[in-house]
Amino acid sequence: MANRIDEKFAELKAQNKKALITYIVAGDGGYELTEKAVLAMEQAGVDIIEIGVPFSDPIAEGGTIQMASQRALQRGTTLKGVFEMVARLREKTNIPLLLMLYANTIFRSPDFFDKCKEVGIDGVIVPDLPFEEHDEFKASADANGIYNISLVTPVSHDRIKKIAKVAQGFLYCVSSVGVTGVRDKFSTDFDKFFGEIAESAKIPYCVGFGIRDGETAHKISRHCNGVIVGSAIVNKVAEFGQDAVPEITKICRELRAGLDS
């Protein structure tokens, strides 16, 4: 069976468009808010959505997503609850959905990838599972047709080649060293970084970490096939709580316009 992520990128390529990928922490403000936000983001022109499964100790995240994870956990968010939420969403949308979560969450859930397939998850992003540990979950992910999205960073250098070789779906390019969060500026030499990536990548590559508005999305998109926006969305939930959906729609429209301009 074809993966929705591949289908989406084929569709975008045919339309000559860049991918807009967004991230939201599941259960931040409650499952219902997350569900509404996911559907609103699709309506506002988002192509792929990453759903963060909150973890007690998210070492790759900056303050924004750390706090969102903590809020979600305090509300009693669980992996089981996230799967149920995704199952409800799948009745309403065909948008590619990924789970972003830490290795221990998968490790402690023996039927994790079967559940992913059952509810309609297309891929996972595991920030603490580098190339060296890539085969930890490979067999069960492959058996269920779930992609494991690989990350590369500006300090990956000669690792990019071997990472690109095993990458599925799209390559997640981290714009700058450090943790997630909006940034005022990027210090990475993008021409060099994306030069290295373009040489190795046989699949689309998208950029995340630090993209905060339509303008930054527009500027960075000339280097890649799409952008990933997380903290800027999560900030809206932090700021507006249950009233965040219109604000999320607004920023997604702005990002879409930035990418399409």
Binding site: P130, E133, H134, L151, S156
Partner: peptide, 23 residues
Amino acid sequence: MEKIGRFGEFGGQYVPETVMNAV
């Protein structure tokens, strides 16, 4: 793939890609 830094099944290198080069 050959596993390095293991004591039986324990150990490994489960860290973000950003720090893997430094590791």
